[in-house]
Computed example of a mutant assay.
Amino acid sequence: MSQPEYIATEHGRRLAYRRRDGAGPAVVFLHGLRSDMEGTKALHLDDWARTAGRAFVRFDCSGHGQSDGTFEDGCIGDWAEDARAILSEVTEGPVVLVGSSMGGWLALLMARAMPERVAGLVTIAAAPDFTEDGFWAEFTEDQKAEMEASGQVALPSEYGEPLVVTQRMIEDGRSHLVLRAPLDLPFPTRFLQGTADADVDVSVALRLLEHADGPDMRLTLVKGADHRFSEPAELATIVAAVEDVSGSGSGGK
């Protein structure tokens, strides 16, 4: 596989990305926490884009994949800045945002910050506000004390090494919550959620659907799908959602 391209952001971070030229609106994939642009969903969308002749961009947030930085030094605000840099410097005109898990939160932040650039939005097991409603809300008193004493807590993870949650990640997350204030999504929006997701409960998807406001917004629940949402039928559901919002969306730079 060829080497990725890179951009240097105004915040001094070097980000890896891959871009496929094609028809618009360009589809931009935003990966999840401790994931990257080489995951199953990103690669499936890249293959779809190649076949369909669509423009497609995928990238690694700082501290992830082939981008520079250390994961433990990052936070939602940093990764949102990364996403905005990619949208501003790598894409032009309207885009369709596809956000997986944490990437769903980032996509919502981009939709709030630059709605004029968004032609459509698809989230997959979106995890908005997870630093507050997931990590912090579920910490034990001992974990909160450990956070205060050492500035971080290591959580066991089924995906590999323990997940280190830092005090900076928690505190920064509180500055980027999207479920506490009006969230206008004035473009076609599709939320996808598996009923067997052990990381993001169905209630999060329902809360997001109830909280957000938009003229064309739908939630699809897939019975038995887990957080990876990467089985063939689930990948087909993602593509169908992208095609759906692409056909009816509009936007401009």
Rank of each mutant, 00 (worst) to 15 (best):
I7Q: 02
T9D: 02
G12P: 07
G12H: 06
L15V: 05
A16Y: 03
Y17C: 01
A23E: 12
A23H: 09
V27W: 07
V27R: 02
H31C: 14
K41Q: 10
A49H: 06
A49L: 15
A52E: 05
R54D: 08
A55H: 04
V57Q: 11
R58C: 10
F59I: 05
D60L: 09
D60M: 04
C61M: 12
S62P: 07
S62T: 13
G63R: 07
H64R: 02
H64N: 15
G65A: 00
D68M: 04
D68G: 13
D68Y: 12
F71A: 02
C75D: 14
I76W: 12
D78F: 15
W79Q: 10
E81H: 09
E81N: 09
D82F: 08
R84Q: 07
A85S: 11
L87N: 01
T91N: 03
V95F: 15
V95T: 09
V96Y: 03
G103M: 14
G104R: 10
L106K: 07
A107Q: 10
A107H: 11
E116R: 11
L121D: 04
T123E: 03
T123C: 06
T123W: 06
I124K: 04
I124L: 11
A125F: 07
A125L: 03
P128Q: 00
D129E: 07
W136E: 10
A137V: 05
A137G: 03
A137P: 09
E138H: 14
F139P: 15
A145H: 10
A145F: 06
M147A: 09
M147G: 11
E148I: 13
E148W: 10
E148R: 15
S150C: 13
G151Q: 14
G151Y: 15
A154T: 01
L155G: 01
L155N: 05
S157Y: 04
E158S: 05
G160H: 06
E161Y: 04
E161S: 00
V165L: 05
V165I: 15
M169N: 00
R174K: 15
S175V: 04
S175Q: 13
L177W: 08
V178R: 04
V178F: 02
V178Q: 03
L179M: 13
L183D: 05
L183R: 01
D184V: 14
D184T: 12
L185E: 01
F187G: 06
R190D: 01
F191P: 00
F191D: 00
L192H: 02
Q193D: 09
A196D: 15
A196K: 11
D197V: 11
D197N: 04
A198M: 14
D201H: 11
S203Q: 09
A205I: 08
A205W: 14
L206W: 13
L206I: 08
R207A: 13
A212G: 10
D213P: 01
G214H: 08
P215H: 14
D216G: 02
M217N: 01
T220Y: 02
R228I: 04
R228P: 00
F229Y: 11
E231L: 14
P232Y: 03
E234F: 01
L235H: 06
A236R: 13
A240D: 10
A240G: 09
A241W: 07
A241I: 04
V242I: 15
E243M: 02
V245M: 11
S248V: 12
G249W: 05
G249M: 13
G251Q: 14
G251Y: 08
G251D: 13
K253W: 15
